[in-house]
Amino acid sequence: MSKTHEGMDVGYVAKLACIDLTEEETTLFQGQLNQVLHYVEQLDELDVSNVESTAHAIPVFNVFRKDVVGTSLNHADVMANAPSSVNGEVRVPKIIDQ
């Protein structure tokens, strides 16, 4: 990963994460995160080409539930949490395209 982070475009990544940053935040984060990424470079010391990755510390398999219908939430409670709703549906600004 050597030095790749120097190209980290905080503005672009923020957009991917759906966050608008102010100019000050962008500059601040750029510096701070580059520092963090520089620190993370120490992992380059390790050769892990033959190491399995760990997604779950304590792995188990096949945790299923039966296909049985349970209770759903009260509709009024769901609507009460929604910041905006119309006729039992959650209202969002017009979706323009994909």
Binding site: L46, V48, S53
Partner: peptide, 13 residues
């Protein structure tokens, strides 16, 4: 690969 996958492997270590 460079960050996430590598971190998961070091996690194994």
């Amino acid at each position: 690969d460079a960050y996430y996958l590598k971190a998961q492997k070091v996690r194994t270590l």
